[in-house]
Design a protein around this nucleic acid. Structure first.
Lengths: 200, 200
DNA sequence: GTCTATAATAAGATAGAC
DNA sequence: GTCTATCTTATTATAGAC
């Protein structure tokens, strides 16, 4: 049957991506050898390169194959009735992966690869731009509704909001004592005080 | 003379460290080859390894040889009369290198190397612990003086303060549109609103 | 699709002359 | 202290059989 092959192919690819993600997270892109990926995936070198053109393609697949429902949830948040509540939901949505064990290191690895590899750069910045657009929309709506400080520039502030969320990833990646799950409430507190303060 | 040799040696070492820092910042540690460092420093491979035992030693020297007056200035801030003013000065002190062109990328590189290389880890965490200690001292003093929210836990908050300062580095490193110098006032605003808010 | 074997090259580091 | 020459090893990727 023809219908079985593509499914099997996809599953095998995903398996490679999954084991590679763990290696990339712990050792970084450059220090992870294709031989290690092969060993972890239980296959030969010849076979790995049957699935991916090169090592970079495996790395890119780690970030591109994560087809979650994030896009839809961001769109839903933009249209939600209460912009402030929606903003807090977006924060939780974007912060959620930081609670997983591999994500912080993977995100950091992606960040450093981004300014060295245009393809990684493009993948990341597309993602980031979408997030910032949503946050900016909600900031504008919240400001119009008198729920946040109207003196804040929506675009610059949206950039800071995503940067502050990124702190959860960098904190988790760099400080072993930093538990993202425990620190999420503090992040919410910081954002709330920053955004809702009275203008001065 | 014996006194000339060590000085020359030190200057030559520093020269290597300086050109290597630029390479490490733009290409990262692994993608920077010792051959490139040699070329940039204008010397042969044999000579480079006369100054440094290996490539890692060059990388470590980038961070260890920056003998600035930071330690003294931190100590002075701890003892300053006005703890809130001193805290803001510490923020400026720790944020200052982010305005330089190479530092953000170098810091990011150091952060990712830290959780892969115990020696880098140690160098960084020693630095970080000293900063956090100073910030915690000032937070306690400011709280006692009624200048900040007394409900904030000093140690956990000190960790967040340094993490937020680090955002200036990650922002500058990952977003070409992010100008650290322009964003420093916003960082101060975020910290002020976070720390000085009335307890609720 | 999967393997074995290996090509091609690059990189870190050293030896030893000057 | 500095160089040239080179050793050794690791690594990505390919060729070609099954």
């Amino acid at each position: 049957m023809r219908t079985v092959d593509p499914a099997k192919h996809k599953a095998r690819r995903q398996h490679i991506v999954r084991v590679a993600a763990e290696l990339f997270a712990t050792k970084g892109f450059e220090r992870t050898t294709t031989a290690e990926i092969c060993r972890a995936a239980g296959m030969s070198s010849g076979n790995l390169f049957h699935y991916f053109a090169n090592k970079r393609a495996v790395f890119l697949a780690v970030f591109e194959d994560e087809d979650s429902d994030k896009t839809e949830r961001l769109a839903a948040a933009e249209a939600a009735e209460d912009p402030w509540a929606a903003l807090l939901e977006v924060v939780d949505l974007l912060a959620a992966p930081a609670l997983e064990p591999l994500a912080p290191h993977l995100v950091m690895e992606a960040m450093v690869q981004a300014y060295r590899d245009p393809e990684v750069e493009e993948a990341l910045s597309r993602d980031n731009a979408a997030e910032q657009r949503t946050v900016a929309v909600l900031l504008r709506r919240a400001a119009a509704a008198g729920r946040i400080d109207p003196d804040l520039d929506p675009d610059a502030t949206a950039s800071w909001v995503t940067t502050l969320i990124a702190s959860l990833y960098t904190g988790a990646a760099t400080d072993p004592a930093f538990k993202a799950a425990e620190q999420l409430p503090t992040l919410r507190l910081i954002l709330t005080r920053y955004l809702r303060a009275e203008p001065r």
